[in-house]
Design a protein around this nucleic acid. Sequence first.
DNA 1: GATGAATATATTGTGTACAATATGACTTCT
DNA 2: AGAAGTCATATTGTACACAATATATTCATC
Lengths: 228, 228
Amino acid sequence: MDGSQPAPPSADEIAVKLTEAVHEHRVLPGMKLSEDEVGEVFGVGRTVVRQALRSLAHDGLLRTERNRGAFVAKPSIKDAREVFEARALLEPRTARAAAERTTPADIALLQRHIEEERAALAAGRTGQALRLSGYFHVEIARIADQATIEAFIRQLVSRSSLVIALYWRRRNAICESHAHHALLNALRDHDSDAAEDLMKGHLLDLLSQLDLSEHPEERLSLREALTS
Amino acid sequence: MDGSQPAPPSADEIAVKLTEAVHEHRVLPGMKLSEDEVGEVFGVGRTVVRQALRSLAHDGLLRTERNRGAFVAKPSIKDAREVFEARALLEPRTARAAAERTTPADIALLQRHIEEERAALAAGRTGQALRLSGYFHVEIARIADQATIEAFIRQLVSRSSLVIALYWRRRNAICESHAHHALLNALRDHDSDAAEDLMKGHLLDLLSQLDLSEHPEERLSLREALTS
DNA sequence: GATGAATATATTGTGTACAATATGACTTCT
DNA sequence: AGAAGTCATATTGTACACAATATATTCATC
């Protein structure tokens, strides 16, 4: 057997793991991420954990309160709208750019991606399906060869996961698969106009599935009503 | 006299100071930021400096090499193009949104902003003028009441400073003042179309002032040619 | 019994010591 | 003299100890 303990993960690796957990709705908005706890899970000291947490906080996934700790962000309704407005500005044009550069290798990769997503959904692993569904959008930015925009979209997709956790109406993420398939076809055919339109429509669809009307229940937490 | 030493700055405050220094071209691409050195300047330990540096690195302003240190990023020509493509996607539409929400107070603030910029330029403080010129764009996102997009634009403006430091042709940043003034008028008149068009044109102007043709001199650093 | 203060506990914030690693200097050998 | 190997030095990477602060508990008092 291999007695050597596996190399402790780096701060970036931990950040990726935590982000994945957010995407899969395994950690939910409001949950506290204790430094000691996270450190014990990953087998590193608090120093490294702190770096990872700070990285997540910088992406807007965590909110840190001084001498209190790091909590998974709970995007407000305004935040939710902002996220999708930003996506509406970035993603359609990026999809257009991607359509002009898509290679057969990209298509194959996206196809595998969609297949995994479908399989995860069929197996009831909705968390993984959700994460893959988000990464699909990141992949398109990568195909467009726009690293800067890709980083932004990655951030927006992450926050979208939080938004979905808070404001999603129904549990049927099935429609997504169709939208992604249509996008795939547009990319394959280098149909820029279609890609841009499909992406725009897809984002509007997603937004329309959210319930962004302020309910009084939002205010059930008196603490946050007064401290925020 | 006040013998009490001033409270040591927080990591965020140091990050802001460093970012300002980048904006003002006081720290230039490639410069090394030693942890001990920065810590001594600000009167804090390496722990806090590290957080600040990591924050800058997350914004793409620094590049950290393992066991070597943090160096101010030197955006490639591709990076430069990406930055302005992202800005072209975000800022015109944001200017449009801002035009629909601009208040007299915003106008007054922008006017002061432009005046400061002009004064700095007249006094030969080109660094400050450059920084103010960048923050003007951030202000517009703030007026649009889009915190998410504002954060992105802030990041892009910062990187633009690096790009300008590397690829700017002439030293005449005078034209900017006119462009910003025209934008101010459009915002005051709530002329959304004009605001969007002016911003689009302004960004194209900026881009056209850059020299983004690959020169062989770019490759004078063998080290970077092989390690990157 | 309720309220308020005082204390106890737990968690984060920061400095520092030590380990890991890269770079530069020096020595040695051909 | 040049090249390669070895060692010295400096800087970053990490863990840990202690300080600061917020929360929970206890206890006295009305």
